[in-house]
Amino acid sequence: MGRTSTSVLAGIAGVLLLSALAAAQGDAPRSPWKYYPEDARANVGPGGPAPSRDLTGTWAGEASGAGVKPGIRPENPPPLTPLGKQLFDRNHPQGPTVLVANTNDPHLRYCDPFGFPRNMNDQIRSMTITTLPNRTFVLIAFQTQYREIWTDGRTLPTNVGGRGRDAHDPTYNGYSVGRWEDDYTFVVETTGMDPQTWATESGYPHSVEARVTERFQRKSKNDLTLTTTMDDPKLYTRPLRLGEVYFRWIPSQTFFNTTCIPSSLQRYLKEMADPAGNPSAAR
């Protein structure tokens, strides 16, 4: 069975499961402050045509529990330059042969924020988009992060990470500007991301000069597709495809608390992950 068919079946089954879970809740009084399994249920079907120039709302991703289909992962292998390979080789992402105990993933070991663009291609749980007259905010449930995308016509800064009075500091989410390409496609350009962050879970590096292009395409009232590419000529021989992720609109979505608490992480690593992966750390 193809991946798409499997995903669709899994999604349908997820919706049905949540119905079963809802039924299992019994007759306990419902609290508006509590999150119920049925609240994670994605809307069924397209829900009608996409509204014009509007991404506002609460969106569920593939890891939200709402049965949203899996996205397309960042391309592998990445088209690295020699410098890119040198930086990539320093990163040891967690995987089948590298355990949590042995990774140097700054998030998994130290609770560092993912930063952009990783926070839009890894752990895609829930997202709210809200709009002001001059900017759009993307509120990301995982790690309780937000991104600020300016829509007032400004251009991206040209001197990030350099010296001089006109220089701008790199930031975890970089500097973003957005514009409507057509009534249903919002294009966001971002640069100036802190180069200490990883671009992907698999440890792809990026420089401060990297320029990321996101295309948020609202295909129906309930469907949003995000396609991302990264142009970073120092580290990649051509623009890198960072994949595609899918979101479904959920009317009453509540963010779970997935903040990484450093003291909790330290206990988790010391008492669980390190002994599990490193014999010298075992008691």
Binding site: S7, L9, A10, G11, I12, A13, G14, V15, L16, L17, L18, A20, E62, A63, S64, G65, G67, V68, P70, Q94, G95, P96, T97, L99, V100, A101, L108, D122, Q123, I124, E201, A273, A276, G277
Partner: peptide, 26 residues
């Protein structure tokens, strides 16, 4: 049918979080 629903539903849930701190250690 209910068994298939439950198994499929759980497969659809939280699919990335297991990979986040994967199971290769166990």
């Amino acid at each position: 049918v209910m068994m298939l629903i439950l198994v499929g539903g759980l497969a659809a849930m939280d699919s990335q979080s297991f990979a986040h701190h994967g199971g290769a250690a166990f």
